Computed example of a mutant assay.
Amino acid sequence: MNSTADYFPQFGTGTWWVEITTFKPPCTYYFGPFYSYREAELHSPGYIEDLVKEGTGEMLSLIKCCNPTELTVSLEETNQTVPV
């Protein structure tokens, strides 16, 4: 099985990502990587729109330079709570 790094060689190197945390279901999604904050900012509305169409309701969106190890994190499975 291929890892995320096989598809995105820059995965885990501190590139820019759109992080969206939804309340229903309680999940955190990572979209990227992007080479600049501005590039991530330009793509962010499309990801938000897609999640709204899926019926996620309220969400928190951030653009950050990070090294996500997973693209989708279920907060229920990790016993984490959605930040308020």
Score class of each variant (00 low, 15 high):
D6V: 05
P25M: 07
P26V: 08
T78C: 04
Y30S: 03
V84C: 07
Y7E: 07
D6Q: 08
L51I: 13
K24L: 06
D6N: 12
T4I: 15
F11Q: 04
N79I: 02
F23V: 06
S3H: 09
E58M: 06
N67S: 14
T78E: 05
A40C: 05
T28E: 01
M59Q: 12
Y37P: 03
V52E: 14
D50I: 01
W16F: 13
P83D: 04
E49A: 11
E41P: 00
P26C: 04
P33F: 03
N2M: 11
E41S: 10
T72N: 13
C66N: 06
K53C: 09
F31Y: 15
I48M: 11
P9T: 09
F31N: 04
I48V: 15
T78I: 04
E70S: 11
S61Y: 04
P25Q: 03
H43N: 06
A5H: 11
T81G: 04
Y7W: 10
P83E: 03
G55Y: 11
Y35R: 06
P33H: 06
N2V: 11
T69N: 07
E70F: 13
T28W: 00
S44A: 15
V73C: 08
L62N: 13
S44P: 02
P33Y: 05
I63Q: 12
E41G: 02
C27Q: 09
F34M: 00
N79W: 01
N79E: 10
A40I: 07
I20Y: 00
N67D: 12
E19M: 01
Y30Q: 02
H43C: 10
W17A: 03
P26K: 12
T15L: 07
Y47W: 15
N67Q: 15
M59H: 15
V73T: 14
C65N: 13
Y30R: 05
K64P: 02
N2A: 14
S3L: 14
F11M: 08
E41L: 15
I48W: 08
C65F: 05
K64T: 15
I48C: 10
V73S: 01
E58Y: 02
P33N: 03
L42G: 00
F34N: 00
A5G: 02
Y47E: 13
E41R: 13
W17N: 03
G57P: 07
T22M: 02
I63H: 12
K64R: 15
W17Y: 13
L62Y: 10
L51Y: 11
E54D: 14
G14T: 04
P68V: 14
F8R: 03
T21A: 01
T56P: 00
E54V: 05
P33E: 04
G14R: 06
K64F: 06
Q10N: 02
